[in-house]
């Protein structure tokens, strides 16, 4: 059957298309397998894509997407013209940088440490315990953080007081905001983040370690030459994907941590868009800010992916 199609194609046209047809036929199962997924992306991701255009319109629900008036770059002018824009951008960038510098490596480190555990039972128990916080909602996590850090009988301040220190008003201070936010993320998501690396590590052939030990390599050298390379491509892919969401700081947590005393360093795009756009039903403006964030993400992803390829990695596309 495939042969006959290929033959027919060859008769009807030149040799290049026939080669194509041959490949098509040869890979028909692969195409068939891609098809449902492709259809999914087209229907649920690309069909709604027209929504992006409302960033250039004044979206009125009653008029609908097409009939709402076109306003060009008005919403972008409002965003970039806002005297707070520079502050917002700076706050978002710093918080994102904190996240990548301090949080991103942590799951890798913990996964490597877990991988070194010799007792299977300890390993499983620790794994299970550290991933629990992922399941607590931010409302609860922030509530617990408040309980620890408040000046009104919070454990941290009680300890400080006992050792003769001054009470520190952690929750209403510009200096502590980023530290606390990042620490909360580290606490909540590190264990969860290790899972993917542990899965990648499960692919390492134990015989490699055996051979390395024969060669007299110590634990650190084994880690460096065998374990780390095994998860390198996973790390790089996760990093590229993270960069795509570089300006996403996580709305709920920041929103709950914000107050009058730390807004100068704490207000980020996500919280700004919420209070200015979403909660007041200003869809067009919210979409415009989202589009700006996406474009920044796109640039970062393209740059990072090309960089990765230069260094001989697969990258994400």
């Amino acid at each position: 059957m495939p042969k006959s199609i290929a033959a027919q194609a060859a008769v009807s046209s030149a040799s290049r298309p026939s080669a194509w047809a041959g490949r098509l036929a040869r890979n028909r199962w692969l195409y068939l397998m891609v098809l449902p997924g492709l259809l999914y992306f087209l229907v649920f991701k690309y069909w709604p894509m027209y929504g992006i255009f409302i960033a250039f319109k004044d979206f009125q629900p009653f008029l609908g997407f097409w009939d709402s008036p076109f306003v060009g770059l008005k919403h972008f002018e409002r965003l970039f013209g806002d005297p707070n824009f520079v502050v917002l951008f700076r706050n978002t960038l710093i918080l994102a940088a904190y996240n990548i510098l301090f949080f991103f490596p942590l799951p890798i480190i913990v996964a490597l440490m877990l991988n070194e555990l010799r007792q299977e039972l300890t390993k499983r128990v620790v794994q299970t315990l550290v991933y629990i916080p992922h399941f607590m909602s931010w409302v609860v996590v922030v509530g617990i953080a408040y309980m620890f850090l408040t000046t009104e009988g919070g454990i941290m301040n009680e300890l400080l007081a006992r050792f003769g220190g001054e009470k520190i008003n952690f929750l209403v201070s510009n200096e502590w905001f980023r530290t606390i936010v990042t620490a909360e993320v580290m606490w909540k998501e590190t264990g969860w983040g290790t899972i993917i690396f542990l899965a990648a590590l499960s692919g390492v052939d134990p015989q490699l370690y055996e051979a390395a030990r024969m060669d007299g390599a110590n634990r650190l050298r084994q880690l460096w030459h065998i374990t780390l390379p095994a998860i390198r491509s996973t790390i790089i892919i996760l990093l590229i994907l993270r960069l795509g969401h570089f300006l996403d700081t996580g709305f709920e947590q920041i929103f709950l941590m914000l107050n009058a005393m730390n807004r100068e360093v704490g207000e980020v795009f996500d919280t700004y868009v919420y209070s200015v756009g979403i909660s007041q039903g200003q869809y067009s403006f919210s979409t415009a800010v989202g589009l700006f964030k996406s474009i920044v993400g796109l640039i970062l992803v393209v740059v990072a992916n090309n960089l990765a390829k230069k260094f001989g990695e697969e990258g994400i596309y």
């Binding site: 629900p61 009653f62 008029l63 039903g281 869809y283």
Partner: peptide, 11 residues
């Protein structure tokens, strides 16, 4: 709220 006011004004 603005989305209600806008919707009301648009009829």
């Amino acid at each position: 709220a603005s989305f209600i006011v806008n919707a009301a004004r648009s009829g």
